[in-house]
Simulated assay, not measured.
Amino acid sequence: MERRSLLRGAVVGTSAAAFGFTLWQGAASAAPAQPGPGPYGAPGPADPNGVQLPSGFTSRVVARSGQKVGSTSYTWHPAPDGGACYADGTGWIYVSNSEVNPSGGAGAVRFNASGAITGAYRILSGTRQNCAGGKTPWNTWLSCEEVSRGFVYEADPYGVNAAVQRPAMGRFKHEAAAADPVRRAVYLTEDESGGCLYRFLPDTWGDLSSGRLQVLRAGSATSGSYTWADVPDPDGSPTVTRNQVSGAKRFNGGEGCHYANDTVWFTTKGDNRLWQLNLTASTYELAYDDSLVTGGTAPLTGVDNVTGAASGDLYVAEDGGNMEICLITPGGVVAPFLRVTGQSSSEICGPAFSPDGRRLYFSSQRGTTGSSSGGITYEVTGPFRA
């Protein structure tokens, strides 16, 4: 996600699959989310790391681009972007993409039960502009190339198995991925101004080497019903995938994507929206739209990566805006959670919760320098609600 000057907002995904779906479904059906007081109160003054947090929360710097991670020998990659957490015995692992071209890829940091860094290493190399991605139910990382006819790569967060290219998942400007174990599908966003939403149906669940790529078909309205249609040529040449199926619905710059409880949420940066798919009813609608905010200024602008907490709260990282992570509650209230100061030429990305839900990781892609070599990865600890 390069710097965006015309962005208008979004949200979602971790291992917390037990989302507050019933509340979310009702809130989104009633009206898109509106500003209000957040569950933790407003962010306070900046701490020594330049992070403004609600009372009771603290931050620490986990890694900086170009510097060794903790006492390990691994040098943290430039332009850290999309990320996810994985359980690892009594500890956990945080995976982070590198959005540079060439030589993107992804790296990982290993933590013990107390949160101390015990290792860091590369899990994917030699790829291009790895932006967002997604976690699979079988604990691999899908790293997505945000370039024309880019690939999805399946990488091992534990650093044991070599990463594998997955061309059957389509060649287009990939952004994020979200796995649905019920329908055995992986949903994929496309970062184009006239992009589409796709799903990949593997021939065998847990094996992404072959399957069918489909595109969502729907009308031009912001709500309604939808269907899926096969993409004839997932390779995208000579005709790009988004132009192969008549009636494919267009979305203005696909970003984050998350699945939980028969629902997919995904965001679009060009119109600052969070969309919701009800997979049981085969309907779609808006869960947030900054142009529909009433009674004040929209708190969420510049949508980017998204994640969710066990409480059902959705956390949205801003590329632009006020360099905030905003949250949207299951009751439909949107509010800032944290703000990073002194880094207006950067973007926030890679939000992900530790498996126990007590720590939130994220990165400032270009840090205080405004350069890909200035990335900073943070951890926030505090009384996150269950």
Rank of each mutant, 00 (worst) to 15 (best):
S59I: 06
R273F: 06
I123T: 06
G56E: 07
A163E: 01
R242S: 08
D289C: 14
A106F: 03
T90W: 00
D262W: 08
A317Y: 00
F251W: 11
Y40F: 14
G312T: 08
R199Y: 01
T329Y: 09
L327A: 00
T204C: 04
F200C: 01
A177Q: 00
C85Y: 04
T127G: 12
S103W: 02
L338E: 06
Y187C: 01
P355W: 05
E379T: 08
G13L: 07
A260K: 02
G224K: 07
P383V: 04
F266N: 04
I328V: 15
G56A: 08
A42P: 11
G13Y: 09
C326M: 10
V303N: 14
E99Y: 02
D289E: 14
F57N: 01
V69P: 05
T241E: 04
L277G: 02
L338M: 15
R4M: 13
R183F: 05
S15N: 12
G382Q: 11
Y153M: 03
F19T: 14
V182Y: 06
C257I: 13
Y198G: 00
G320L: 14
V12M: 10
V147R: 15
D235H: 03
F111D: 13
N261L: 08
E190F: 05
T227W: 02
T283N: 01
A113I: 05
R385M: 04
G256N: 14
R122S: 15
S125V: 06
T22G: 11
L213W: 11
R8K: 15
N161E: 12
T72F: 00
R4Y: 14
P355N: 09
S237I: 07
L142W: 08
Y158K: 12
G70F: 02
A10S: 14
T90V: 09
D47S: 08
W24P: 01
D233P: 02
T267G: 15
V306C: 09
F172P: 01
Y315T: 07
G195E: 06
K249C: 04
V11S: 11
V264M: 03
A46Y: 07
G256L: 06
C257V: 15
G332C: 11
R8F: 09
Y198D: 01
G195I: 11
A132E: 13
P80C: 10
A162W: 00
K68V: 13
A248F: 08
M323W: 10
G321N: 09
R60P: 06
A106M: 05
T136C: 01
G89R: 10
S220N: 14
E285Q: 15
L6R: 11
S193F: 09
F337P: 03
G38E: 09
G321C: 13
Q276H: 09
Q67S: 12
F384A: 07
Q25L: 04
S246N: 09
F57P: 12
F353K: 01
A31L: 05
S363E: 02
A18R: 12
W205E: 03
P37R: 11
G50K: 13
D319W: 15
N252E: 13
E318L: 12
D203Y: 05
E379V: 15
S65W: 10
N97I: 03
A120V: 11
R273V: 12
Y378L: 04
G133N: 05
T22M: 10
R3P: 15
E379S: 09
H77L: 10
E99N: 02
G308H: 11
E145M: 01
G295N: 05
L300P: 00
G38Q: 04
T75E: 13
G50T: 11
